[in-house]
Amino acid sequence: MSKILITGGTGLVGKKLTEILVQRKHEVAILSRNPKNKNEFKWDISSNYIDEIALKNTDYIIHLAGASIADKRWTKNRKQLIIDSRVESANLLFRKVRELKIHLKGFISASAIGFYGTYTSSKIFIETDNSGNDFLAEVCKKWEAAALQFKNDNTPTTILRTGIVLTKKGGALAKMNTPIITPLGNGKQYISWIHIEDLCLMYIKAIEDNFHGIYNAIAPDYQTNSSFSKLLAKNNNKPYLRIGVPSILLKIMFGKMSIILLKGSRVSAKKIEKNNYSFRFSKLQKALSNLK
């Protein structure tokens, strides 16, 4: 049994991950801005504060915290919050771990496939490819650099570049599951997705199997926005309208943030499979049926 400290533990992935970790007899503590339960402890990035009790005897830190990419329009202030909520929080963790001389067995951080840039192409991206040059790529580069401070300080470090996380309640799937399902834009953009159970098991693998390095945390099933929408409609017995939501309308509604809806490339899952991860939900149809 290990003691694991999770940031972002009250979020969509954090809740499910905590549930599975506890089932596997691990001890879980959560850093929260507003702690409510006995396993939750206060932290405040703006004032560089972490309740030191949370870090006592910690074996692993899982860093999931970060302001949502898709909740609000990308104003200048929102962009800075998206970066700081990931980077400054990791910097704070690093400083406190050093200050308190915590000997971690591992630091595990979320990242995103936005690292490769947000555009549609025929290329299949692998972990050694260069980063993109748009806003999301900038976020991911800074996010990962902050996490890699731990590696440079001789702490085993794992980074999971995640795509769209599919869950039964909440998240992207709930927003896509409209009364009439239709593609967005021309529907040719790829959607890199992963079932929440597979994602959580990857984090657990980093704890239980000495699983270190940078990995694409996405399923090995390439789907375009159109093919994804068709399968979702069929799975939920809903009508599918082939004519997509016009790109111009999405740009008016969401501004620059619309790029995450209208663009998307394929990302390889081969590295994580070669490192002995066996997907429970490798095909979209199976994942959607499970989440119905």
Rank of each mutant, 00 (worst) to 15 (best):
I194D: 00
V28H: 03
Y277I: 08
Y116G: 08
D84G: 03
K56L: 15
Y203C: 07
S247Y: 02
V22D: 06
S289I: 10
G213T: 09
I191T: 03
D44M: 09
K283H: 13
K238F: 13
T157Q: 03
N152R: 15
S111L: 07
K79Y: 11
K56S: 14
H212T: 15
A269K: 11
I6Q: 13
L64Q: 08
W143Q: 13
A137G: 12
N152A: 11
G8Q: 05
K205I: 06
H195A: 00
V245P: 05
N216L: 13
L231M: 15
L291Y: 07
K96L: 10
I214W: 09
S122K: 13
T182N: 01
L100E: 06
Y190G: 03
G264W: 08
T118H: 08
G185Q: 04
R78F: 08
I272T: 01
T120H: 07
K263F: 04
L64M: 10
R95S: 12
T58G: 06
L55C: 04
K38N: 15
K105A: 13
E138Y: 12
I30P: 07
E127P: 04
K105I: 06
L93K: 12
L166P: 05
I196S: 01
I218K: 10
K42D: 09
I194F: 02
T7N: 10
K274Y: 13
